[in-house]
């Protein structure tokens, strides 16, 4: 209660210093570093999770492409489970459920595993549709000039599959970074956590939310712009029949 009152008086006193636009600049400069830290956390965990998702996705897509028995079934089940459940629930299960089975992971591990579990299936679908988009006769065409199987994959199939996959892969990267916004449920001080904290403590809703939106824009806008540039370049550049 004492805290609350203190916060209120703090709020009142800052309110007097408000600029004409009604936004408390002092508050923003004071707490911006917290957002920077939180954004770093989001970016770091997001990057690791996305990287692992790409690996899981590529392996999953290859298993399906080569129709490897048994593994292929397992991947299919994994993809369905991962795509049809929310990350939030996956994280609850990892963070609160698994310890009861004796599997205790840190918050960061849970966040990374959860993001990878979710992202792996999305990346797998992106890679798979890229691989499927390459005509079978391209393969034969490569064989007929004497390339062996792995050379055909390396020089002919992968480059084409990858360029077809790029838009979907980029969309997945953006999607996964957005999904990191639920990391606060596993007790990580991410952007949402900081914003909620500031709202709760100081009732500085406008400032806290403004910084939140700006932080996500700073993270996501460049990625989204790069993605659309990349997509356009691939579409208009040298190839694609």
């Amino acid at each position: 209660m004492e805290n609350k009152r203190e916060a209120d008086s703090h709020f009142l006193c800052l309110k007097n210093k408000k600029g004409s636009n009604g936004v408390d600049i002092d508050f923003i400069t004071q707490y911006a570093p917290m957002y920077v830290e939180a954004a770093k956390l989001t970016l770091r965990l997001g990057a690791i999770g996305i990287l692992l998702s790409l690996i899981v996705g590529l392996l999953g897509a290859l298993v399906q492409y080569y129709k490897i028995p048994v593994l292929r079934r397992i991947i299919a089940v994994y993809i369905e489970l991962s795509r049809n459940t929310p990350l939030l629930v996956q994280l609850f299960l990892l963070y609160f459920g698994l310890p009861k089975m004796g599997i205790v992971w840190t918050s960061e591990t849970c966040a990374i595993v959860g993001l990878t579990f979710l992202g792996g299936s999305y990346m797998a679908e992106a890679f798979r549709s890229g691989l499927e988009s390459v005509d079978k006769i391209q393969f034969e065409s490569g064989l007929s000039i004497g390339l062996n199987h792995s050379q055909v994959m390396r020089y002919i199939i992968f480059p084409q599959a990858l360029s077809t996959s790029v838009p979907a892969l980029c969309a997945n990267v953006i999607f996964l970074i957005k999904e990191t916004s639920v990391f606060s449920v596993v007790a990580l001080a991410d952007l949402m956590y900081v914003a909620k904290d500031l709202i709760g403590l100081y009732y500085k809703t406008e400032e806290a939310l403004l910084m939140l939106v700006v932080a996500y824009l700073i993270i996501l806008l460049p990625i989204s712009i790069i993605a659309s540039l990349l997509e356009r370049r691939l579409r208009y550049a040298g190839f694609g029949n």
Binding site: I174, K178, E179, T180, S181, V182, M192, A195, K196, I199, T205, E206, A208, L209, L212, V213, Y216, L217, L220, L221, S224
Partner: peptide, 16 residues
């Protein structure tokens, strides 16, 4: 471009 959770915060806390 905004995470849906941010939008929820904007409306839930912001509108109030």
């Amino acid at each position: 471009i905004m995470p849906q959770l941010v939008l929820l915060f904007l409306v839930y806390f912001g509108a109030t």
